[in-house]
């Protein structure tokens, strides 16, 4: 399968973006093998890959969130353990806090962070592996979260390299900061979508290879339209969702912000449909623990509802885009 010609994020010349993608990929392939993400996060931090979108005078790497999304996409494509996303998002949450001491070691990857979104009795937090501090983002603002608020790991997705935990987050008083909440959830959603797009792309490439060599009825199964067309659909949907995310990242107006949110939702559902089709095309092998399909599928499926459950995100967008225009 041909790699996408256009690299995410126009602010870098194509060559530099390509180089950035390659550095990320090689680190992830070396260290992102599904064990605890400590070494991976450290290596990414040492290369300055965790700090895009955070000003250099605050210890970040400068640039924009677009570059962080490029890193996330490549991590997904290399099937790095998804807990690393907590770090990519967490630095942005920590940068909201007054206490600047916490940000530095997080940016260098010395300190691992867990990023928790929302409030309630049992907030699902996917991709929990290991962490030194937990930071909470809710509609009332961003703050550190006590370890005691987090449950022991639960076997929700039974993923080989991560578990869900549940957070008990009583909603604090105080003024709500809707704008910050929207921005930070959109940022996390974008990075998650980028990871899913990369993950689905890699899985689809592997599946295309497999159906090209696996033979039944004397022909490669990929030559049958019943196999070929659903995979083509997956390719098409991923491409269009990615265009929308790209456009949202490139623009700066309200319409770009909407594109970004719609794009993240489209990417999530396209990636999950893609993973399901790949599993189907692989046949029984795709349903085994041994194949990589389930690692992709579980990360993609969980990301679809992170940081905000998809139904809720869609209802909010529906209200915003449709209800505001009375007949």
């Amino acid at each position: 399968m041909s790699a996408p010609k256009r690299v995410l994020f126009g602010e870098l010349p194509a060559g530099e973006a390509q180089a950035l993608a390659e550095v990320t990929r090689s680190i992830a392939l070396d260290l992102g093998d599904g064990r605890a993400p400590t070494k991976l996060v450290r290596a990414l931090g040492e290369s300055g890959l965790l700090g895009f979108g955070i000003p250099e005078d605050r210890g970040g790497s400068g640039g924009t969130v677009g570059l962080a999304a490029l890193v996330a996409e490549e991590l997904g494509a290399a099937m790095a353990a998804p807990p690393v996303l907590h770090q990519l998002v967490g630095v942005h949450l920590l940068s909201q806090l007054e206490n600047a001491d916490l940000l530095g070691p997080t940016l260098t990857g010395e300190s691992l962070v867990l990023s928790v979104f929302g409030a309630g009795d049992a907030v699902e937090v996917p991709f929990a592996a290991t962490w030194d501090l937990a930071v909470l983002c809710s509609q009332r603002g961003t703050r550190l979260l006590d370890r005691g608020c987090l449950s022991a790991p639960v076997d929700t997705w039974i993923a080989p390299d991560w578990r869900n935990v549940r957070a008990e987050v009583p909603e604090a008083g105080g003024a709500s900061n809707r704008q910050a909440w929207d921005e930070l959830t959109s940022l996390a959603g974008t990075l998650g979508a980028a990871y899913s797009l990369g993950s689905a792309r890699a899985l689809l490439t592997e599946t295309a290879r497999y159906v090209g060599v696996r033979e039944q009825f004397g022909a490669p199964v990929g030559s049958f339209q019943a196999v070929k067309h659903p995979l083509a659909n997956a390719w098409i949907d991923l491409r269009h969702a990615r265009e929308l995310v790209l456009a949202g990242l490139a623009g700066a107006d309200d319409s770009a912000a909407t594109d970004l949110r719609l794009g993240a939702l489209a990417a999530g559902s396209a990636a999950q449909r893609c993973a399901e089709q790949c599993l189907q095309a692989m046949g029984g092998i795709g349903f085994t623990w041994e194949s990589d399909v389930h690692r992709h599928l579980k990360a993609i499926a969980a990301l679809r509802h992170w940081p905000v459950p998809e139904l809720r995100a869609r209802a909010a967008l529906r209200a915003e885009l449709l209800d505001s225009t009375p007949p």
Binding site: M1, S2, L204, A208, V211, G212, A219, P220, G222, S223, Q225, K228, H229, L231, A232, N233, W235, I236
Partner: peptide, 12 residues
């Protein structure tokens, strides 16, 4: 769809 699959994804 066949064109996308064959030329875009390299399916047989």
């Amino acid at each position: 769809r066949s064109i996308v699959a064959e030329r875009g994804m390299g399916l047989p």
